[in-house]
């Protein structure tokens, strides 16, 4: 009996020693992995910062009031991006108005109303796949369908529709994720009070999913603002020295949609155009446009993060 006890005690001490060794080895592995991760991250961040830094160093000085309020010009020092940023803004407006309601509606329908079956699975897989389709394919689709098929022309409306198609999967997927993340007991609690599906949707699901949905929508828009390929494909103009008609008019009915049918250019195309010219002055202008574009994208992402942070705080249980 005593022997056995001593034996097991000895074994216990040995086990402790092994355990200490194992823990020490695991800690060493942790350190190695953390160091490796840090190096990789440093490389990635350096590259990114160099890129942005390069743009900023070359272009930042070029950005002034004149640059933002001038049309493109043959002379690099007089060229501006007025038509480009106004174009970008208007195209984004169309995209947002189309993609956000349709995407949220489709996401909510798929998650809450659609019968779960092979069809909904099929749609789910395809929506996820669409998010990964190269953007130029959307451009070709838009060219064939909107520009030639419906004869809508190379207008702001078509550009907005094209980009809306492009980001629709992102909005749908993020809406579904956001709805799915709502705790089941919240939904059941609402149903348990006798709420019908519509009431649960409007009063509980949409408010609770709002941060996720808005984040998805803004991330989608920030992707759309930088897209060049589909816009080029549908034939955006590269040299525009005029603005589309203003959306707000002094006469009745005060709002005009004439701008939708106007030609346009956008920031990435303006940049692309200037980069491909030989004059150094245009390269600087392109860098400056790049800075503006990055600033816009960062701003949009920043808004997304802020919304997520602000709204989630109120909904965390």
């Amino acid at each position: 009996m005593t022997m056995a006890t001593e034996g097991s005690l000895g074994a216990a001490v040995q086990t402790d020693q092994t355990a200490f060794d194992a823990v020490r080895r695991a800690k060493q592995k942790d350190i190695v992995f953390a160091t490796g991760g840090l190096i990789v991250m440093a490389i990635a961040m350096t590259l990114l910062l160099t890129l942005i830094g390069d743009l900023v160093i070359r272009g930042a000085a070029r950005i002034d009031y004149g640059f933002l309020t001038s049309y493109p010009s043959r002379l690099p020092e007089r060229a501006g991006i007025l038509s480009a940023w106004v174009g970008s803004l208007l195209v984004m407006l169309v995209t947002a108005f189309l993609a956000i309601p349709i995407g949220i509606g489709a996401g909510l329908y798929l998650e809450e109303y659609a019968r779960k079956g092979w069809l909904s699975n099929f749609i789910e897989i395809n929506v996820s796949n669409l998010a990964g389709v190269p953007s130029i394919i959307y451009g070709l689709l838009a060219l064939g369908l909107f520009v030639y098929g419906f004869s809508l022309g190379k207008t702001i409306l078509v550009a907005g529709m094209t980009l809306a198609l492009l980001i629709l999967p992102i909005v749908i997927v993020s809406t579904r994720e956001a709805v799915r993340a709502i705790p089941r007991i919240i939904k059941e609690g609402a149903y348990g009070l006798g709420a019908d599906q519509w009431q649960v949707m409007w009063s509980y699901i949409i408010p609770a999913a709002r941060p996720g949905i808005l984040t998805g929508a803004i991330v989608g828009l920030s992707r759309a603002i930088g897209e060049t390929a589909p816009i080029i494909t549908i034939g955006a103009l590269t040299f525009i020295a005029f603005l589309p008609p203003a959306p707000v008019t002094p006469d009745f009915p005060l709002i005009s949609f004439a701008w939708l049918n106007d030609g346009f250019t956008v920031l990435p195309i303006q940049m692309f155009n200037w980069v491909s010219r030989p004059q150094e002055g245009f390269h600087i202008a392109a860098a400056a446009t790049g800075v503006v574009l990055i600033a816009l994208t960062f701003t949009l992402n920043g808004i997304a993060i802020w919304i997520r942070y602000r709204l989630r705080k109120g909904y965390r249980n």
């Binding site: 609690g189 149903y191 009070l193 006798g194 709420a195 019908d196 408010p207 609770a208 909904y315």
Partner: peptide
């Protein structure tokens, strides 16, 4: 469900004010 109410295992107040939580069943 309008006639038979339910309280769950885990407290599940809605992400709203106390007042709105209690009022929820009436609003419904």
């Amino acid at each position: 469900r309008l006639r038979v109410g339910m309280v769950f295992q885990k407290p599940n107040p809605f992400p709203k004010s106390i007042y709105e939580n209690v009022a929820a069943g009436l609003r419904v």
